[in-house]
């Protein structure tokens, strides 16, 4: 068996060397988030808590920075020298940036994990194996987006007192202390979608899989889909805004195109494109 593995791996490697962009991905799950549409309502975050068995940690621990919000809506306020005013709540309101794991294709978290608990799946996802994680937390330190969260306590003991434990999603585990976790692009839903498609003997169509955040977003700001499927909605948005995977700098024909990826210059090659918010000057 191992000889077969060696040969397979090496032939993969050779193909990679011959063809720089070669990947053996079955899917490339990706997102496009239109910040023009985002109202900062946090429904996506709530949906994520419900879907992924995220523990609520309470105000005190949240203030200490020990929360578990896989999807957080970051709020930014304009600096006075950039047109904002001095008030705490500015009249034009804040800017919102919903951040979930960017599922980088060149993820900085992957090579640093000492036990290979985080790795890349053939779906183009950046997976986290809770059972393998030993909690060295290096991945979180090396995530420029700071999108990995650590179980500082056995949160499950207090988060779902009886009978709230009945609300837990049976499709995925409840994590104990000492384990790193992060947004999985609702991998359990992807699994269900792929299984259903295979049972029916067909390819996975666009719309078969939808993440909890995308499903919940009242303004449909979040679009989720497969980048390998050129007809999917998400591919079309990426293409329309001239954002491409595998680049650390996007050259656009029209400066008005709004698509960008966060911290693209670090060459992490994230799978989430944001469409810039347009405001009056």
């Amino acid at each position: 068996m191992s000889l077969k593995n060696i040969l397979e791996n090496w032939s993969d490697y050779r193909r990679t060397a011959e063809d720089g962009g070669h990947h053996d991905y079955e899917h490339m799950w990706a997102m496009a988030i239109d910040l023009n549409k985002c109202t900062g309502c946090n429904a996506c975050s709530v949906a994520c808590y419900a879907e992924n068995n995220l523990p609520t940690v309470g105000k005190k621990r949240m203030m200490k920075g020990q929360g578990m919000h896989w999807l957080r809506v970051e709020r930014y306020w304009d600096e006075p020298d950039m047109g904002g005013d001095e008030k705490e709540y500015q009249e034009r309101g804040g800017s919102f940036l919903p951040m979930m794991c960017q599922q980088c294709n060149a993820a900085p978290c992957e090579p640093v994990c000492p036990v290979a608990a985080t790795y890349h799946t053939p779906d183009g996802l950046n997976a986290q194996v809770y059972n393998r994680c030993i909690g060295s937390r290096y991945c979180s330190n090396n995530c420029p987006y700071r999108l990995r969260y650590f179980n500082f306590y056995s949160y499950y003991e207090e988060s779902w007192p009886e009978p709230l434990n009945m609300q837990l999603n049976p499709d995925l585990s409840v994590r104990d202390k000492g384990v790193m976790e992060k947004c999985t692009f609702c991998v359990q839903r992807i699994r269900v979608g792929k299984d259903a498609a295979r049972r029916e003997g067909r390819e996975v169509h666009d719309g078969d899989v939808i993440t909890a955040c995308a499903q919940t977003c009242p303004t449909e700001a979040i679009v989720f889909g497969d980048m390998m499927d050129k007809s999917s909605k998400v591919s079309k948005i990426w293409a329309a805004h001239e954002v491409e995977l595998g680049k650390h700098e996007q050259h656009k024909s029209d400066p008005d195109l709004r698509g960008y990826r966060v911290l693209e210059g670090l060459n992490t090659d994230p799978c989430v494109t944001y469409l810039e918010r347009v405001r009056e000057a």
Binding site: K64, G65, G67, S140, N141, Y149, F150, F152, K177, G178
Partner: peptide, 15 residues
Amino acid sequence: QVGMGPANLNWPHMW
């Protein structure tokens, strides 16, 4: 017994 919480480690101070 309790986890890394009491050490006051937090997000983003993992180390």
